[in-house]
Nucleic acid binder design. Structure first.
Lengths: 379, 379
DNA sequence: AAGATAATCGCAAACGATTGCAAGGTTCCG
DNA sequence: CGGAACCTTGCAATCGTTTGCGATTATCTT
């Protein structure tokens, strides 16, 4: 059927081994024979069978990306960053949507392992049981997490490497921002409780209120999807009439809430303010444009596979690496100052956000007036 | 290193061939020995090496998805549909972002072919040269296009199978809708000229104007990205002051235009109306919510890989299959009636949209007041 | 009871590459 | 001129499966 190396070798009058060496430009091949082999290969349109090669080299030259759902624009950005890095390194990316479902995810992982995948970057490791985490760990494949709590360093997940945004700092920035605007009664609607990234945002957010001596905001957990957030918001908009602001665990959740508000006739930001997390492209043109915490999504995906590649380069067990990526506030038009509130010194708020965080990895968190700029990956 | 079939066989006291047959529950194996082999495999945590299996069976059990850019929410939806269908059939999905770049795309295709991929669903085949198209064709791999012009049936691309929305009808629906609202001076900003789907939308759109005896709208081609559309809109908003409406080639383009309008201070829909194409989730919460043509994205991706699977099932050359998927108008708040315009009979417009199309595959195109419902795939 | 038939299982050859090792041929140097 | 060193190339094993075919044993038929 397809042209094999044997065909090329025969046509070029050499042994398959020499043909192989010629194609893979290894040393110890005469320039003439190499040229001849190359010509024949070109003429026959030979394409090396990567499956066969993979069998002997033990590498599949592909890496797995296991995420909740590619339809979430956040993951689409991450995936693009990951794919670009993989392509650059001559590997391909196999896409898996886990829906944060532990069982489905384990089936994916089994499958990827069976395909002798070179490495895995995975987002939805949180719902896994300790036994499943052990199983994953003992597979011996390089793994980079996209989801890990900075606040729970004793977690067994910390043996894995990770590329994550500074969610702790981001949550705190958001909290201080709303506090400075005079919001004391704010609702926090976020994703699954077990999800490290969301958990950190929540912790940072609550920290801000605690440090200022304010009562603890109410937080409601749910799925991190548009539809789920819409449902949650519909309920709480009725129950909680004197709430003046919402902090959403991410932009998609924020959009769901905004949709609910639109239907309920509550105006943004006149009636209630809202701030998101992620800074999706769409948040520029939502109604109104969304104030949010920006995190470099593309860079995160890129960093994750680059870490994977370096892990693959040196074999044996490796020290886990945790790359924390900086975040910052993007002010748009979804928040307003509560009337009768003193204008706070903005610098003091920034100060709190910066130095108040409990870890030393906190990244630059300047407040930027729209016009996002490129980020550099914080190491 | 890893557990191989040989290990299992030895442990179970049988030959590898029996072990293989036992695992693959083929006939001619005693129930006792099968049970024994299964137990040993379970105990040793044996996982079939899919690479080795792929070498002998000639199947990689993975299918390729080549699209412009996963960050486009449209493709994210399609990808999810495709991945679900692939997973259901026990295959995985490798993701390739071509950026509509012919050369980059050919590198992807070469690579996929080298990996002996089972099939390919591809969106960005349009920029390929005829020679490249031939090369792709002669690879002999099952291929399904996501991009094909219904208007150019003589195109050599018609030898490929395809799963596409009824873009021709969609364009016409959009055109008639705006005409009925009294818009005569409308700008059409769309994607690359060579892109079959965009081309069809444009043709349908222009047809509507021609049939009503109206002057041909101006159309401007560009990249189908947020940024590119933003640029285009910025220019034309100044140059063309008496335009009253825009028809965008897709929702992302619409969003780019809306962003530009926001900055220019032109109000939607008071100053200019806009209708998009795709009905992305975000178009519900844009500012204002976007009137658009809905096309079932998830179903398209799903249909594409299902077609692929059926092609893979029966070997030999196959008759190309073209699955046309119905579209419909979703009215939201981004369009207004031009003052002083007679209220047209809406039914007559629908009539035109339905029967005016030049092909018989046109699907249901009811106008729906938001609340999208499930679509059925039109065959 | 003996030959035929059927049910199990093992042997060994693929699949298409890579790669250690040895064989053959040159060149070089003393 | 002879042997050492080097450059090129071929031989053959290997990676971990699947699978056609033949061998062995058990069951059945008459």
């Amino acid at each position: 059927m397809a042209i094999t190396l044997k065909d090329v070798a025969r046509e070029a009058g050499v042994n398959v081994s020499t043909a192989s060496r010629a194609l893979n430009n290894s040393f110890g091949i005469h320039v003439d024979t190499r040229k001849r082999v190359l010509e024949v290969a070109e003429r026959l349109k030979y394409r090396t069978n990567q499956v066969a090669r993979g069998l002997v080299t033990g590498q599949s030259h592909s890496i797995g990306l296991v995420i909740s759902d590619i339809r979430n624009p956040f993951f689409a950005e991450v995936a693009r960053g990951a794919e670009d890095a993989a392509f650059h390194a001559g590997r391909d990316l196999v896409l898996c949507n886990s829906d944060l479902n532990a069982e489905k995810q384990m089936r994916y992982l089994d499958w990827l392992l069976a395909k002798r995948i070179d490495g895995i970057v995975i987002n939805s490791v949180a719902p896994l049981s300790p036994a499943q985490q052990d199983q994953l760990w003992s597979a011996g494949v390089p793994i980079v997490l996209l989801n890990l709590s900075l606040a729970h360093r004793r977690s067994p997940l910390w043996r894995f490497s990770a590329a994550i945004a500074d969610n702790l700092a981001g949550g705190e920035i958001a909290g201080n921002y709303l506090i400075d605007l005079g919001h004391a009664h704010v609702l926090h609607v976020t994703g699954p409780r077990t999800h490290g990234n969301f958990a950190d945002r929540t912790i940072g957010f609550l920290n801000a209120f605690q440090r200022r001596g304010l009562p603890r905001p109410r937080v409601v957990y749910g799925e991190h999807t548009f539809g789920a957030a819409y449902q949650v918001a519909m309920q709480h908009l009725e129950a909680d009439r004197n709430m003046t602001a919402i902090f959403a665990g991410n932009d998609v959740i924020a959009f769901g809430c905004m949709r609910a508000m639109m239907e309920k006739g509550v105006r943004i930001p006149e009636d209630v303010s809202i701030v998101g997390f992620d800074n999706l492209e769409m948040s520029q043109i939502s109604s109104p444009p969304l104030t949010t915490i920006d995190q470099p999504k593309y860079e995160t995906g890129k960093a994750a596979v680059e870490m994977l590649l370096s892990m693959m380069a040196k074999d044996g067990p490796h020290e886990p690496e945790h790359r924390i990526i900086g975040v910052r506030l993007i002010e748009r038009e979804s928040c307003r100052r509560i009337a009768g509130t003193a204008v706070q010194d903005r610098r003091s708020a920034k100060h709190l956000a910066r130095d108040g965080s409990s870890h030393s990895l906190s990244a630059a968190n300047k407040s930027v007036r729209d016009k996002p700029r490129k980020h550099s990956v914080k190491e």
